[in-house]
Design a binder for these strands. Structure first.
Lengths: 110, 110
DNA sequence: GGATTGGGTCGGTCATGGCTTACGGTAAGC
DNA sequence: GCTTACCGTAAGCCATGACCGACCCAATCC
């Protein structure tokens, strides 16, 4: 199985590395080939290639071969899942926060 | 410096570990002491303690000592930052996606 | 005061993963 | 066809971190 269903776990692990987040940020303006991405980073091109593979496997990037180059672009699908998870967590955190605030008010009514 | 400013980097790294995300999910219903969190996981209590420390240092959890126990709860502040980052990334990804769609339409107008 | 319970810290082990160099493979240009 | 540019893969090295057992401290209960 060369293309298993990408788990959201993979997306979190992929975004954990600062170099990979730098690649993501670099791609926000539009698709770029590997060589240009590697030119802006202090690591070797193969290292960039490995990071791009991790991001692609996580479903965060898409590849488009164009001649001898390969253009990487952002893939919105996985980002939508992450947003949904974070929004749910945010809601629960706010509920817990509000409940705690009521407790505090209860303890010192004055 | 015992309490440096928590970087958003730390939040991403903290959320990368599946055990730590399990702890987060467990705390969505409300605050819990360390012992109860450790009882639900297949790892030792010291390991849970270490994970809770990572999450706290990242600004994702707050601690409230209560007698001999320590209650951990979700901290909304850092979650808001993550939401903001993800929303911005989502917007750029959608723009790039729309631009690509226009290119495709241009290539095959029929 | 002694015993018990709840938790954080320490030292050490082992696996994971990020980086490099070296190599192979394909498309474009002469 | 031969070279050159662009890129992925393989092997190895090394640092990070997740885990555990052991230990120590503080608060509660008898």
């Amino acid at each position: 199985m060369t293309d298993p269903i990408p788990q959201p776990d993979a997306a979190f692990a992929a975004l954990a590395d600062p170099t990979r987040r730098a690649l993501i940020d670099r791609l926000r303006a539009g698709p770029l080939p590997v060589g240009r991405l590697a030119a802006d980073l202090p690591i070797s091109r193969p290292a960039v290639s490995q990071h791009l593979r991790v991001l692609s496997d996580a479903g965060l990037l898409e590849v488009e071969p164009q001649g001898t180059r390969r253009l990487y672009r952002l893939a919105p699908d996985r980002l939508r899942e992450l947003r949904a998870w974070l929004d749910g967590l945010w809601g629960d955190a706010m509920d817990s926060f509000a409940a705690r605030a009521r407790e505090i008010a209860q303890e010192s009514p004055k």
